[in-house]
Design a protein around this nucleic acid. Structure first.
Lengths: 241, 241
DNA sequence: CGCCGCATTGACGTTCGTCAAGTCTAGTGG
DNA sequence: CCACTAGACTTGACGAACGTCAATGCGGCG
């Protein structure tokens, strides 16, 4: 049997993201059972949306390749980036409550996701306890993450926000096998600003300030972290003092 | 058999909150099945914590009486109120992911909650599809709510934030049978400020401004909304213009 | 009655947003 | 190969919104 690249059926059980993604913590025999929650794969090109606010909710999506942003739009048009997602992370949880999505998911570079019909997830997680628990954990993790963002938005100054953002990205990229000190931003200054509650000029200025102080080396979207500890001290003034 | 007030076993199926709380949308026969997810009731006095960050997670809590705040604490001690919860709302979702709570739940007045051991919820929701769906919806709703808070914190000015806050409280209280135009704030200016990303002085000043402009009547914690439409216009300048 | 916590109000300072000019880079087409 | 353009980024000058600090008021409770 020959298959071309587009039709290869890649199962969770032999996916190289299984340590990060949906199958985390499952036993081998459970792993096989969830292989068929991935109905299809879908490619999304840069700047295209995976799903948009208002669309019917049918599935959760696990990122295989690429980085996404999710954003909500207020009735008056103001946009707010609610997160940046990368390989192994799950998108679409917002759609469960009203059967319709309430945010957009936009690819920041050419990307590929696993489509997991939610009906099928619910079916399977009635039988596979570990999957049920895992789904609950994914949603809980998102809630906890957002608590952190609220803290950031509500009480941190620009420098602290950007430092926290860079360290967070770095840590997640490192967990995926990338450098612990270098990163390429897939998002614009404006998108970073939207996420952090700052204007793009402030993001730019703060980045420049970090560079002047020797904390980072910035070249457009390429960032090298020179003094991660100093950034950590910024995020957490008293603890690391 | 006689029971005193403390030991009365009140089941979901005859709880007066069943239109708002855990049993929403369940069929009568399903309703009976979930009666025993409520293991016990627990009274919490004003200023006491229902659970605190770091404590082991064992159960979700449905509020029967009273208003709570939930708050996260940064390592450096900064506190962020992440929400105010009232009758029928569920607390504790943050604890699922790591088996430990990551925020505190503090009663703002004498309160009473239903304790729902999470193990039992998971068991039952493997059998009762509607409960499974409902649990997913509750978590999804929390995620969507937090998106809204992020939008508010990141892009609204003080007046818009406070107006949105008052309207939201009003609407939730109204859904619980209270007045659509009058409310008693159970939280201090400082707690409102923490939630909205403002200092207490700014909350106070903005409240006074609303009062001067005839939008509300404020007397300490008693607030009467005189012109809800004007408040709505503040939240959403262009739409209602 | 006096204390304490909460709320209000004013004066002033800081941070970040706004507006505007200018630079850099990648991509396009001659 | 180079000129041109568009989009993203940087930088500066200025102002507005909100935070900070401090004084004062108010109400409830011992």
């Amino acid at each position: 049997m020959t298959l071309n690249a587009d039709t290869i059926k890649v199962a969770c059980s032999n996916c190289n993201l299984r340590e990060l993604c949906m199958p985390v913590g499952l036993q081998p025999q459970e792993l096989q059972r969830i292989d068929d929650i991935v109905a299809t794969r879908r490619k999304v090109r840069r700047k295209e949306t995976l799903f948009a606010s208002g669309e019917r909710f049918t599935a959760l999506y696990a990122i295989r390749i690429g980085v996404f942003k999710t954003q909500v739009t207020a009735e008056d048009g103001r946009e707010q980036v609610t997160g940046f997602q990368m390989a192994g992370e799950i998108m679409g949880l917002d759609g469960i409550v009203n059967d319709h999505h309430t945010c957009d998911a936009v690819a920041l570079e050419d990307a590929e996701v696993c489509v997991m019909p939610f009906e099928r997830i619910e079916e399977l997680s009635r039988e596979v306890t570990a999957l049920q628990r895992h789904v609950h954990q994914i949603m809980s993790r998102e809630i906890v993450r957002e608590h952190g963002v609220m803290l950031l938005l509500s009480s941190m100054r620009a420098e602290e926000r950007l430092a926290a953002f860079l360290l967070n990205l770095l840590q997640r990229l490192h967990a995926r096998g990338f450098s612990a000190s270098e990163l390429v931003l897939r998002m614009t200054r404006e998108e970073i600003g939207s996420y952090l509650g700052l204007k793009l000029e402030t993001v730019s200025r703060t980045m420049s300030k970090f560079a002047e102080e020797g904390l980072v080396e910035v070249n457009q979207r390429h960032v090298r972290i020179l003094d991660a500890d100093a950034l950590r001290r910024l995020v957490n003034p008293t603890v690391c003092a």
